[in-house]
């Protein structure tokens, strides 16, 4: 297996608070890596460090390296805007823009310079189809995205990310605001997407991590406690704390 991304001694600080302590974690190509752990353990911080979205918050500081295809994304020569085109992100709460479904998906391609209507239509179609949403919205592409259900909105947001053709997709608890049926659809989608994309997903839900991921990292108090294949983590954890967490003894 090949590492698409890798962190080396990654520490993240918010002003004086250290949120992550020297994390080394590989992210395999075309696989789903799940990050689990109790609230405040640093898993979301870790995720946001992978496409430099933590920089949006004032007072954040990063030490160590994050490699994407072997190159450090925190190198001063790297443009965070270009990086985020390669490493897309899906947020906890579905956040479609207050515009039509079409314009939502076309937003990324448009800012990256695609203007031709037929090209945009093609991208929108392809992305919505890949996000398993095309059949549900094809008759209302020009209606507001805010009229969709929560589950549809989350798949729309994924289509919007797919439209800029990223290589890695980061998902921050993407199903936490969804009902069970929408969650199941989303998990199916994640399964399909990993054939073409590398996926990192933060989740609170252990069953979800077990269902969708190939590798799992367990975080606690800003440290990576254990990383292994998902099967190994859930059947034979090496660390006592991992076992306690996945068996529900705390968290």
């Amino acid at each position: 297996m090949e590492n698409k991304m890798e962190t080396r001694k990654l520490s993240v600080y918010y002003k004086n608070f250290q949120a992550l302590y020297s994390v080394d974690l590989p992210i395999q190509k075309n696989a789903v890596t799940a990050l689990i752990g109790p609230s405040g353990c640093g898993k979301s911080t870790f995720l946001r460090a992978l496409n430099r979205m933590n920089e949006v918050i004032e007072g954040t500081r990063v030490e160590g390296e994050v490699l994407l295809d072997g190159k450090n994304i925190y190198d001063p020569r790297v443009d965070p805007v270009a990086l985020r085109k390669k490493v897309g992100m899906v947020f906890q709460k579905p956040n479609p823009f207050p515009m039509s479904i079409f314009d939502n998906v076309a937003y990324g391609p448009r800012i990256h310079g695609i203007k031709k209507k037929t090209d945009l239509e093609q991208i929108v179609h392809k992305s919505l189809a890949a996000a398993a949403l095309w059949d549900e919205v094809k008759d209302r592409l020009y209606k507001s995205a805010l009229g969709l259900s929560g589950g549809q909105q989350q798949r729309l947001v994924i289509a919007r990310v797919l439209a800029v053709e990223p290589e890695v997709i980061l998902m921050d608890e993407p199903a936490s605001a969804l009902d069970p049926i929408s969650t199941a659809k989303l998990e199916d989608l994640i399964h399909q997407l990993k054939q073409n994309y590398t996926i990192v997903i933060v989740t609170h839900n252990m069953q979800q991590a077990a269902r969708v991921s190939d590798y799992t990292g367990f975080f606690l108090n800003g440290e990576l406690i254990e990383y292994n294949t998902t099967t190994a983590i859930f059947t034979a954890p090496r660390e006592k704390r991992t076992e306690d967490y996945i068996t529900g003894r705390f968290g």
Partner: peptide, 27 residues
Amino acid sequence: VPREYREASLALGATKWETTWRIVVPS
């Protein structure tokens, strides 16, 4: 304007400026 809109736009590789004019102001 919700922070989620700005973050979504930035995470799609939009610059700050594009985010302001295409997302924040219209919203």
